[in-house]
Design a protein around this nucleic acid. Structure first.
Lengths: 157, 157
DNA sequence: CAGTAGTTGACTAAATCACTCAACAAAGGA
DNA sequence: TCCTTTGTTGAGTGATTTAGTCAACTACTG
């Protein structure tokens, strides 16, 4: 169905909440589970992936918790997705360049490649600081241009 | 991993080959399997979906086979994907508007929605006749601008 | 050293995917 | 009317993935 995984959804929520967290103290997993609506055990799985990707750091012991490892402006949704979902790869034939025997002769191949570069570009442009700004605006009740975007599921014919 | 299904890949190949088929006679499933590199039984499954979606029509009996049901200019990759893979829905919370309780308050939701509309737009723009033109150009050995697009999988840091 | 908090590996139930198989239905020619 | 050719369909299957859970563990702090 061309869908991101639940892990990726949770990961974005987690990163966003960490970015919105003002204090210098780490945010505990317990607080995060409440916001992200995910079980503690599963949250730790996801956080583990984010740690491996260098997106967050964690502290053990009392007053421990989770903190962003980089400034929000340097973290993109592409990083987050790659950390928990693996690389964006619209079609198996795009996994490695020149691996598919059809390759350059296959117009479908070219199409998937082009679409993939567009998706990856959008994901890379979407940095955490932009989402944070947007989140703050939403909280204050301000309108946001992106609100007007319509994503139609059924085809209009 | 954010990937289309094998079915969708095959479906695009099938549609493309049908579009490239010059004659008015239907193309038989046997010929299609050779091109799309898919078993006859599985091909029929996929063709069945395409028939239901009104994208192709089939004829039984000797000299039977498969034909496009619409002019290539009116068939987009979005149609093909929807026929075999179901709707494009990047995140479960986008399945139906206003169903997700987080909805307008959730900046992640807005982000996924925006990305989805971009993806769907690109899929809708990619009509079969464009792919056919491109395929003919590739066969003739002409260069095609889209060839130069790079889709990077690893993040360059 | 007791309590808090994150870490890890093993496990699992359910779903999905990518098919196959086999019986069937329709069309057309001899 | 058969017979052959071709498409149709539903049931089934093995492999893989997903979305978790559980429990034992490690590390830090006071």
């Amino acid at each position: 169905m061309l869908q991101i995984s639940r892990r990726a959804d949770y990961a974005v929520r987690i990163m966003l909440e960490l970015g919105l967290h003002e204090s210098d103290e780490p945010l505990s997993a317990v607080e995060l589970t409440a916001y992200a609506e995910v079980s503690k055990a599963f949250l730790h799985k996801i956080v583990g992936d984010l740690v491996k990707a260098g997106l967050v750091v964690t502290y053990k012991g009392p007053a421990g918790g989770i903190v962003l490892a980089q400034p929000p402006a340097e973290i993109s949704m592409l990083d987050v997705l790659a950390a928990v979902d693996g690389p964006v790869c619209l079609n198996t034939c795009l996994l490695r360049p020149n691996e598919c025997p059809r390759d350059a002769l296959c117009p479908a191949h070219l199409f998937w490649g082009r679409l993939q570069s567009i998706v990856m570009g959008e994901l890379a442009k979407a940095t955490l600081d932009k989402l944070i700004t947007q989140a703050r605006a939403l909280k204050e009740g301000r309108e946001w241009p992106a609100n007007n975007v319509s994503y139609v599921l059924e085809k209009s014919r």
